[in-house]
Design a protein around this nucleic acid. Structure first.
Length: 749
RNA sequence: GGCCGGAUGGCGGAAUUGGUAUACGCGUUCGACUUAAAAUCGAAUGGAGCAAUCCGUACGGGUUCAAGUCCCGUUCCGGCUACCA
């Protein structure tokens, strides 16, 4: 018998899978389908890391598991290629992003193939391929036609380092998510998607999804729906101030009003006496960076000099301005109820404003019911070169016009210099010829903003259904067969991407393009893999484990895959342990070596037990304990010997984790890979162990026949006549408990 | 500050959902094979104790015949969120 040589075996099977196009999927009428995908990667120059491997292997285990069960399985793959790293690289080196992207994709593909993933390679999708982004632009135009893509002048987060606008979720602690530079507010005309139109549906349908509760909660909080009321307060000068509150029932305790510094109409409220102070406060507030606002929570504010009437108490209450009230939420004005609200109380105490205990009134008495959301519309324009061009052009008056669909794609022009200028325009503005476009005989100028990368990834799962379709973004028949996606696996984008794709799904369903309203049935959110020291892997710390090194060191892809499934619960972070990798390698080695010594033995009980355990564990995504069960099985086979049926079963169960080794074993055993079934009748053994506890502590174990378990009296007789048990029960027994299900007797003495 | 997770041997982690705590792997120790080492195979391995036994799932209480699991309180660690009225 030859020895286990993973690299040799893996090369052999990868070649076979490639040549036979083993994983290409086709729609087959009447055959149950299963579609799985990972969140497609950004192909960085560094290649695959161990986190990708964990993510992709989870998908692969499920893919192969369901294939072996006879389902028609689609497992595609793609690349999320627009983005800043490629553009920054271009700025630095002058290399076109198109070129470096191609190099990186080729590298990623090569590496993914070395891992033996059951991918349908004919369905690769790449967001920066004009054949792809043509349809991203088409999607934009559909949203534009329905008024859900619109322009608005507003203050936006601006990163002075990357020279681009950022979306709310791309600002972390007041800093740019990519370069860490402090962001500032800049007033610009920007494109938005009207995601708020779907706020209610996005929220209400969350509970129907088989997604981790954590993610569902985060999305709910992000949408942030609160039901309350708008209430009008009449000011001295006759002006109305409408406040939003979730507690209209506490209105009798409202002892002052607070306006946001940016409140529209503030000028009309402020008295002449207070004008200077208020204007100075407002100017200071606008200057304050977000970091300062977050770090300093000490309440500040100024009195406007005006009063308004509380409609419930008819009392005159002062109107203040303070930056703890946000202009962008509700009406930018609140009624302060310091007796009920901690922030209002803090403010009242600091500025010596009255705090009045309040009795509650009927919620609808003084206001009109109103629902507000924390979620804002999705800012999608980016002043970057390496993104999908927004298919819009402007006429001489500056009015936007959609590029006609038959002129798509709007291709990214080649430029000499990728550096954006500080006018807030991308390097696209430098492509003078490209800028000119004729629509309906009229000369126009193209939009130079590109789309947020999240727009490109908001529909790629549908492209997988018909990736080469040149008549439509997706084929309606293909998508009806394959989608929605059954399993989507990732470790990031809890809110952004996973909310945007739901939004687009609902929109395109409304336009009749999709036959479902939720794109992802089940979501698995896997944990990160950290360095052996428990810290995040990073190049600068020099603690990065390269998965390709693990393979090439001689362990092979099967060990790497199986180890990453064995490392711990898939949804928890885990630390890499190089020695445990060796343990998994030993296990696979032991599997292979069993082939050399096939015996005439009957292990039907443990075999059935293992089939059941592995099958159920995979259904529950307990991949780590599934591998442990296989290890136990192998340990047992080493003790008692393995029949060829044992080895066939072992190889079939092992295949989702270690497909090359399992394929090799099955070939040598001349067997197919059909997923084995267990029979419950082999799981009930003739004898069972009855545990005897005295006062809840384990004191004895009795072997009894399984039939006796039905006869409580017989069991108790056996227990009570046991010599060891009698030692504890000399002073009599107060209570006897027999638990058949647990095969357990507890005696209270 | 708010919400959500965690805390189990020397280490990573199991535990049928209230019923034999520590499966599986790593590490360690011993043995077999070998001239030797590696590899491989086998055995042992929570702590204390000669023992019978006692103590053990972050800490303090509670419920129960029985608690890692349920309840109350505390500490520490991680994630998200951050003045959202």
């Amino acid at each position: 018998m030859d020895r286990y040589e993973p690299l040799k075996i893996e090369e052999k099977w990868q070649k076979i899978w490639e040549e036979t196009e083993a994983f290409s999927a086709k729609e087959i009428d009447g055959m149950p389908k299963m579609m799985l995908a990972e969140m497609f990667p950004y192909p960085s120059g560094a290649g695959l890391h161990v986190g990708h491997v964990r993510n992709f292997t989870i998908v692969d285990v499920l893919t192969r598991f369901y294939r072996q069960q006879g389902l028609n399985v689609l497992r595609p793959f793609g690349y999320d290629t627009f983005g800043l790293p490629a553009e920054n690289y271009a700025i630095k080196t002058g290399t076109a992003p198109q070129e470096i992207t191609k190099v990186n994709i080729d590298n990623f593909r090569k590496q993914a193939k070395k891992l033996g993933f059951a991918i349908d390679w004919s369905r690769e999708v790449n967001t920066s391929d004009p054949e792809y982004y043509k349809w991203t632009q088409w999607c934009f135009l559909q949203l534009y036609k329905k008024g859900l893509a619109y322009q608005k002048e507003s203050y936006q987060w601006w990163c002075p380092e990357d020279q681009t606008v950022l979306a709310n979720e791309q600002v972390e602690n007041g800093k740019c998510w990519r370069c860490g530079h402090e962001v500032e507010k800049k007033k610009m005309k920007q494109w938005f998607f009207k995601i708020t139109e779907y706020a209610d549906e996005l929220l209400d349908e969350i509970d129907n999804l088989e997604w981790p509760e954590k993610i569902k909660t985060m999305q709910k909080n992000w949408i942030g729906r609160s039901a309350g009321a708008e209430i009008d307060f009449k000011a001295d000068n006759g002006k109305n101030i409408t406040v939003f509150t979730t507690r209209p029932d506490t209105i009798k305790g409202a002892t002052f009003i607070v306006l946001a510094p940016e409140y529209q109409g503030l000028d009309f409220i402020v008295t002449d006496d207070c004008k200077d102070a208020v204007m100075k406060y407002k100017a200071d507030a606008l200057k304050k960076s977000e970091v300062e606002r977050q770090e300093n929570k000490e309440k500040t504010g100024v009195f406007t000099g005006s009063y308004a009437v509380n409609p419930a108490t008819k009392e005159k209450i002062p109107i203040w301005v303070a930056d703890y009230v946000l202009a962008g939420y509700g009406t930018g004005a609140i009624m302060a109820v310091p007796a009920m609200d901690d922030r209002d109380r803090e403010f009242a105490e600091k500025f010596d404003l009255p705090i009045v205990e309040t009795e509650l009134v009927d919620r609808d008495l003084y206001g009109t019911p109103k629902v507000t959301y924390k979620m804002r519309d999705w800012l999608i324009s980016r002043q970057r070169y390496w993104g999908c061009p927004i298919p819009i052009a402007y006429d001489k008056e500056g009015n936007p016009h959609p590029i006609p669909e038959d002129q798509l794609p709007v291709i990214i022009p080649e430029v000499e210099d990728y550096q954006p200028d500080n006018s807030g325009r991308s390097a696209l503005a430098k492509a003078k010829d490209w800028l000119k476009v004729t629509i309906d005989g009229e000369e126009m100028t193209r939009e130079t903003d590109t789309l947020d990368g999240y727009a490109c990834s908001s529909w790629y799962l549908w492209r997988y259904a018909s990736p080469h379709d040149n008549k439509a973004a997706w084929d309606s028949e293909a998508i009806k067969y394959w989608e929605p996606v059954d399993y989507y696996v990732g470790a990031d984008h809890a809110v952004a991407h996973l909310l945007y794709i739901r939004f687009w799904c609902k929109f395109f369903a409304d336009q009749g393009y999709l036959p479902f309203r939720e794109p992802i049935k089940r979501l698995l959110y896997n944990g990160y893999i950290n360095a052996p020291d428990g810290k995040k892997m990073s190049k600068s710390k020099g603690n990065v484990i390269d998965p390709l090194d693990v393979i090439n060191d001689g362990y092979g892809a099967d060990t790497l895959r199986t180890y990453e499934m064995f490392i711990g619960p898939y949804d928890m972070d885990a630390a890499w342990d190089p020695r445990s990798v060796g343990g998994v390698y030993r296990f696979l080695n032991r599997c292979y070596n069993l082939l050399g010594d096939i015996k005439e033995v009957d292990n039907i009980i443990i075999r059935n037990k293992t089939i059941k355990k592995v099958t159920e564990d995979i259904h529950k995504y307990n991949f780590n304990t599934a591998v442990a069960a296989l290890m136990e099985y192998v340990n047992e086979l080493y003790k008692v010997g393995a029949s060829s049926e044992d080895l066939v079963t072992l190889a079939k169960l092992l295949k989702p984790f270690a497909p090359h080794l399992a394929s090799e074993m099955l070939e040598k055993l001349d067997a197919d890979d059909e997923w084995p079934k267990w029979d419950e009748k082999y799981l009930v053994s003739d004898t069972v162990t009855v545990v005897v506890q005295i006062n809840g502590k384990l004191r004895a174990k009795l072997e009894v026949s399984a039939d006796d378990l039905e006869d409580e009296k017989k069991i108790m007789d056996m227990v009570l006549s046991d010599r060891k048990v009698q030692k504890y029960t000399e002073d009599g027994i107060k209570k006897q408990i027999f638990v058949k299900k647990a095969k357990l007797v507890n005696l209270v003495v």
